[in-house]
């Protein structure tokens, strides 16, 4: 057994162990902040697995998107709604647990079946480009996927502006051309109160 393969096996087992323990911790721990950080660890280790598979671009994307954006977003959400509150015990917790366990087991068995029946080996070894993949993706982004790549910048710009407009607090109090007071609500006033208005 060469040293490269030994290193790979050691890395793989360490990463898989972290993923398994981390994922169990995400589900089982009571404190949601611990779960969120453990989730970040799981995402990082998955990125490590991608690196082992020679998919460096996917690994980088995994770190950027899942750890950098999704996980940070989750932690933000936890911070914003961090209210001390004693949750009421759920009445029929047992039947719910049974249902969710069976759903998870079904999914697991489906995945195992796919794993066992699918032919995983590539038809020709030339198909695997390994380290070159990042270069190849870059070339595609600037040749045949140039249009979507550029339009994505418009999409992101617009999403950012929209988020700022929706989130900012400075509201106009009067109509800029007539000076009449405004309330930033629909011009058509509702004739009956909404459910959300009944305090």
């Amino acid at each position: 057994m060469s040293i490269a393969i030994t290193t790979q096996i050691i890395c793989f087992s360490v990463l898989s162990l972290i993923i398994l323990i981390g994922a169990l911790g995400v589900v089982l721990l009571e404190n949601i902040v611990y779960s969120a950080f453990l989730l970040g660890g799981v995402f990082m280790s998955v990125a490590g697995l991608y690196l082992l598979l020679n998919a460096s671009f996917v690994a980088a994307a995994q770190v950027l998107v899942y750890v950098g954006a999704v996980n940070v977003l989750i932690i933000f959400a936890i911070m914003l709604v961090n209210k001390k509150e004693d949750l009421k015990p759920i009445s029929d917790i047992k039947s719910r647990r049974i249902i969710s366990t069976s759903i998870c087991l079904t999914l697991l068995s489906l995945l195992i079946r796919v794993d066992l029946t699918n032919v995983w080996s590539l038809s020709s070894p030339q198909n695997s480009i390994g380290e070159e993949s990042t270069i190849r993706i870059g070339e595609h982004l600037f040749s045949d996927y140039l249009l979507p790549f550029e339009v994505a910048s418009v999409l992101l710009l617009m999403a950012m502006i929209g988020a700022i407009v929706l989130a900012r607090r400075d509201v106009m109090t009067k109509d800029i051309s007539t000076g009449l007071p405004v309330d930033q609500e629909l011009i058509e006033k509702s004739s009956e109160p909404l459910l959300t208005n009944k305090n």
């Binding site: 996927y145 979507p148 609500e185 909404l194 959300t196």
Partner: peptide, 30 residues
């Protein structure tokens, strides 16, 4: 004429539409 550019332009249209429909942020209906 390409699945990717279809998706990106579809998303540009949709995200802008979500923003526009919630534009009157003080109104719970919006």
């Amino acid at each position: 004429t390409d699945l990717i550019s279809v998706f990106i332009s579809l998303e540009t249209l949709s995200v802008a539409s979500y923003l526009l429909s919630g534009y009157l942020k003080r109104d719970p209906r919006s």
